[in-house]
């Protein structure tokens, strides 16, 4: 079987068949290498996040998977079809690439009919996808009159039109308000419930973290990491925000923890310390403090954010990733 071969090639140990696998996928534009030797292995049925900072090559990779951009080198298998023959698998794929693009003078419904006719899909498939993306009531209005959120929904509806086994969504929450983002997340989750493999790109790791069970990270065209989200998060050691009852004990507490092998940094707020590494659990930290007669008024584990894993892997901080997730301390 083709899928079996793909598994062997990428050396994946799990028995799950791969929906997408590539080998040495590269793309050069002129003399700039934009995607460099990327070997993807995305298990069937996964909701896979595809993250990387702006310009990392996410869209270019996605375009190669969709047969829009011809790889400079490399090969791949998608849903059992060969990457070099997009016609062999694209009938089972739905995609939203970058921003949604439709004909402004046609209604939402007519826009989908253009695609349905082209793909020889039943026109009866149009209204159900409009309904699912919450656009049915406005389906007769011209695309031109749609709000950004509605345009995005139409993009999702178009991607769903063919009843895909693989859904590729490039930054689907772009331009959505917070409520729209939450809705988009639950929509994507619902696709996973239907057994559809989803590849969703984003430059916001916090977003990926909330909806994905698998993650692929790229940076400057190179694959940095891929695998289950949980496994990645587990590689991150816990961090604690602690504060002694009396601020005067702060320095003594810091010294004790340092002696125990931890890295201790000043935390936000008076008397608060940030404790990293050292392999201590929350109970260990508490016990150590009590042992030396220090009572803690705060002991919180900081969320093990994927974001930090990402920085750890890529080795540098990107301005594209906001810090709002970092202070998820439990008080």
């Amino acid at each position: 079987m083709v899928i079996g071969q793909a598994e062997q090639r990428t050396g994946e140990r799990s028995a799950a068949p791969l929906a997408v696998s590539t080998d040495g996928l590269s793309k050069r534009f002129g003399d700039r290498t934009v995607v460099d030797n990327v070997a993807l292995a995305i298990p069937a049925g996964a909701v896979c996040g595809f993250v990387g900072p702006n310009g990392a090559g996410k869209t270019t990779t996605i375009r190669m998977l969709l047969g829009l951009v011809r790889p400079t080198s490399g090969s791949g298998t998608i849903l059992g079809g060969r990457l070099s023959e997009p016609a062999s698998y694209l009938n089972k794929v739905g995609a939203l690439i970058e921003s949604p693009a439709f004909y402004p003078q046609l209604s939402g419904r007519e826009n989908l009919k253009v695609l349905a006719r082209l793909g020889r899909l039943p026109l009866a498939a149009v209204d159900p996808v409009l309904e699912r993306s919450g656009l049915l009531a406005r389906a007769g209005d011209r695309y031109r009159s749609y709000s950004l959120g509605m345009k995005q929904r139409l993009g999702i509806a178009a991607a769903m039109l063919a009843g895909p086994e693989l859904l590729i969504l490039d930054e689907p929450t772009n331009g959505l308000d917070p409520a729209g983002i939450v809705e988009m997340r639950s929509l994507i989750r619902s696709f996973a419930g239907d057994g559809i493999t989803v590849l969703v790109s984003s430059h916001l790791i916090s977003e990926i973290e909330q909806i994905c069970d698998h993650v692929v990270m790229i940076r400057a065209g190179r694959l940095v990491h891929q695998g289950p989200v949980d496994a990645l998060r587990a590689t991150q050691q816990a961090e604690y925000l602690i504060a002694p009852e009396h601020d005067a004990d702060r320095d003594r507490l810091a010294r004790l923890l340092q002696e125990a092998g931890c890295t201790v940094l000043p935390g936000e707020g008076a008397g608060v310390l940030l404790v990293q590494e050292g392999g201590l659990g929350a109970a260990d930290v508490n016990r150590l403090a009590t042992q030396y007669g220090i009572t803690l008024r705060q002991l919180g584990e900081r969320t093990r954010s994927l974001e930090r894993a990402f920085f750890a892997l890529t080795g540098s901080k990107s301005a594209d990733v906001p810090d709002d997730q970092e202070l998820g301390a439990i008080r």
Binding site: G67, L68, P86, E98, F102, P104, V114, L115, A158, A162
Partner: peptide
């Protein structure tokens, strides 16, 4: 210019 070609080519790659 509308970018619609990318959608068309996913539905008809030939």
């Amino acid at each position: 210019s509308l970018g619609t070609l990318r959608q068309l080519l996913v539905r008809q790659p030939r």
